[in-house]
Write a protein that binds this DNA or RNA. Structure first.
Lengths: 258, 258
DNA sequence: GTCAATACTCGTGTATGCACGAGTGTGCAG
DNA sequence: CTGCACACTCGTGCATACACGAGTATTGAC
């Protein structure tokens, strides 16, 4: 048999030294981030398996993991589908996040060591010199928040926050697409970091909570706008939304080399 | 081959209608709760597979799930082992829990509907008439807290709290083994529920946080006592702790019918 | 006797095969 | 034309097979 050697002709399996399972997880995660997999869409093992050119086993593991994290949920038909968010869920998300981020900031103010404080300051500096691209801002923003979580020195809080933030890609475009959000966010980040440097837990928590509340408002703006745009696109394209989507070539990433 | 039909002679596969994977998860969870699997102990797929008389596939899924939840962690040798807790981790656990429980109580005070308030009151009533058994108290306590989480009407908070509480079995005996804990806890529970009934979020949060802080203190008492007792037992039994534990029959549940 | 190299054991990662069950389309009877 | 029953499709759950790699024991040389 010639299946001793994987022998993938494609050169696109540039995954790190980790296993196919983790790789599949990353690919699915990216597919959700990029919008290739839309919320509510059904995700089936054979399909993903064919897409990634690996067997169902690692795909299965990746999907179960995403299910455990809440990115995938039980589909009505019995399988799994990309989790659906409604505006209420977004409100719940930010309420939880406000609590956790506030606690993280407070703990960081109490527990951060000198190195961590230095890193926070330098990340903040880097954010001041950022171009106008929402993606760049989003990435640095994520880095800063992650550093705050680390500085809190609380493994459970860290894990809870990471799990919670996994849900962000489902919300759509970043909040930095809201006009003027970057400047305001920078101001808020400065307040949080200043309170951490001053070792003032109460102030750090208050600043962090305020930051998240504002992020929530921006999120609502962006999402409602997205929903409106999508509705317009839909009504413009197909007058009667046919329920049968069971054709041959489905949505999933056409990763075929051809 | 006769493997068309599972044909398990034992009558102990009384699992609910769910699949073997969930069943394996429950069994492992129980094994950890019961102390059959001790923290730090290595857990290997073939072993569990043989124990539960199912193939490695569902065992694997259960273990990955527990890993995602933090109950299992990477073992030095490359496999998985039951997560180890130290006193610092317990402190971190309760700090996170205090934040989440406080938020849950506050949200419950704001969002609980009449039915939920009634259920809370009746659970509290039931707790007043409980016998002295720590197990009974622990179970009702869990029920009350779960009802508060539900009443908060926040799916993300609910999931975060459930994931966090998964870690409790690793901490050992329940805090109701601390003398006098049951009475104090009942008083604290009454305060939380009263604040929720009064629709006072700030008071509910304060009461919940106080409750968790006290639970933390009881936990520290119980755990330090356990550690001391274990140390005594160890030093009494074997003067020189041999490192080679690689014998034939290992710890895992001797579920053999023989 | 000690060190090093080799062979072996065993656990994990992945692939594949098979059975069951739900959803669906089709054909027949009314 | 409508309703029901049967067969089919397909996705999931589980089991088994195989390869790789890390750790370990054994054996040989110095």
């Amino acid at each position: 048999m010639s299946l001793d050697i994987p022998e993938r002709g494609d050169g696109d399996d540039e995954r790190g030294g980790r296993g196919r399972s983790d790789w599949a997880y990353d690919m699915l995660h990216e597919a959700i981030r990029e919008g290739t997999l839309e919320p509510g869409q059904r995700v089936m093992e054979p399909e993903v398996s064919a897409w990634l050119r690996i067997s169902r086993t690692p795909v299965r593991e990746a999907m179960r993991r995403m299910q455990a994290e809440g990115l995938l949920e039980h589909a009505p038909g019995g399988g799994l589908s990309v989790a659906l968010y409604d505006l209420r869920a977004i409100g719940e998300f930010y309420a939880t996040r406000e609590s956790l981020e506030g606690t993280a900031a407070a703990l960081a103010a109490r527990n951060a060591d000198d190195t961590e404080r230095r890193i926070l300051a330098s990340t903040l500096d880097a954010m001041r010199k950022l171009p106008d691209a929402p993606r760049a801002h989003a990435r640095e923003n994520q880095a800063l928040h992650e550093q705050i979580y680390q500085a809190a020195h609380n493994r459970f809080l860290l894990k809870s926050l990471r799990t919670l933030l996994n849900f962000v890609p489902l919300l759509g475009r970043t909040t930095y697409h809201a006009p003027g959000r970057a400047e305001v966010a920078l101001r808020e980040h400065e307040a949080i970091v200043a309170a951490i440097q001053a070792r003032d837990p109460a102030e750090a928590e208050a600043a962090a909570r305020l930051h998240i509340r504002h992020a929530y408002e921006s999120r609502v703006h962006v999402v409602t706008e997205d929903i409106r745009a999508a509705a317009e696109r839909r009504s413009a394209r197909r007058p009667s939304p046919g329920p049968g989507e069971r054709g041959s070539a489905r949505r999933p990433p056409a990763k075929d080399g051809s």
